[in-house]
């Protein structure tokens, strides 16, 4: 079953083409990794889906053009986690997670429902943030902060998670925790994830499918093993990625 279908997606800023005629689809219970070198247009795909960038082409979710969707309707379908960014004010973790339920509010003056409370609790539990719920977001480490925003989109209870470099700037422990958490979410919910990643090892280890982009164009699309081939990566990165990665990993082998 196709969840997300993108047809002929192009994004231009003035005369500069960032994405050029990209088409792909995401099925149920898939984790699609968007990979490619800097400037390939990976984050632009996320921006277009979140309607943060003007685009041409069509984006369908379960057969509905997202241009026809209201903002709240879109938020109930997509949970989008952007690259970690600075927060200006000292909101508590719970306040940030609770905002994830915005799309479900009945009106301007409506209070949170029992379901809202349950989803917020569940998101805090899943991300291991229950003990930090009353703490200011400004006092958290980068990893904890990213988990708080992940908890927000989990509370949003979307049908599809879209993550833009979710573990950017995070150390290995947090990278592992975050990817394991997302994997668990896919297993338990049966839903799908699209994520932009730089780390090819993570893409290979966790992705069921991959999109390989270069200079705004789609180079390969399909199951991860079929996309992350030696030839494909060499053509995009202009280097023998396989040889280099194998050489790097061999440094860790114990005699």
């Amino acid at each position: 079953m196709t969840v997300l279908e993108i047809r002929n997606l192009s994004v231009k800023y003035g005369s500069l083409t960032i994405l050029d005629d990209v088409s792909f689809s995401v099925g149920g219970k898939q984790w699609v990794m968007i990979i490619g070198p800097n400037g390939a247009g990976k984050s632009t795909i996320v921006n277009a889906i979140s309607r943060g960038a003007p685009y041409t082409g069509e984006i369908y979710f379960n057969g509905t053009d997202i241009k026809a969707c209201k903002s709240t309707e879109l938020a109930r379908r997509f949970g989008i986690l952007m690259q970690s960014s600075s927060v200006g004010y000292s909101f508590t973790v719970e306040e940030i997670v609770r905002l994830g339920r915005y799309a479900y509010s009945k009106g301007i003056l409506s209070n949170s429902s029992k379901e809202d409370d349950y989803k917020v609790e569940r998101a805090l539990e899943m991300t291991g943030l229950v003990h930090l719920r009353g703490q200011s977001i400004l006092t958290l480490s980068g990893g904890e902060r990213q988990r708080a925003f992940l908890a927000q989109i989990l509370a949003q209870d979307p049908e599809l998670l879209i993550l833009d470099e979710p573990t950017n700037h995070l150390d290995l422990v947090y990278q592992k925790q975050t990817f394991e958490l997302i994997n668990e979410w896919i297993e338990n919910s049966g839903r799908s994830v699209v994520s932009v990643v730089h780390d090819l090892s993570l893409a290979k280890a966790y992705g069921t499918h991959a999109l390989l982009l270069n200079r705004g164009r789609l180079v390969a699309d399909g199951p991860t093993d079929e996309v992350l081939t030696r030839e494909n990566l060499k053509s995009v990165y202009d280097m023998d990625v396989y040889g280099w990665m194998s050489d790097m990993l061999s440094q860790w082998q114990v005699d």
Binding site: G52, S71, A75, M82, G88, L99, G100, I108, I153
Partner: peptide
């Protein structure tokens, strides 16, 4: 006052506001 929740979302970040469903 009616838009206090939306202002919370904006205060965290405009992208965040858009992603949780605020008509920015």
């Amino acid at each position: 006052l009616c838009y206090s929740r939306e202002l919370n979302a904006f205060a965290i970040g405009e992208d965040n506001a858009r992603n949780i469903g605020v008509n920015v």
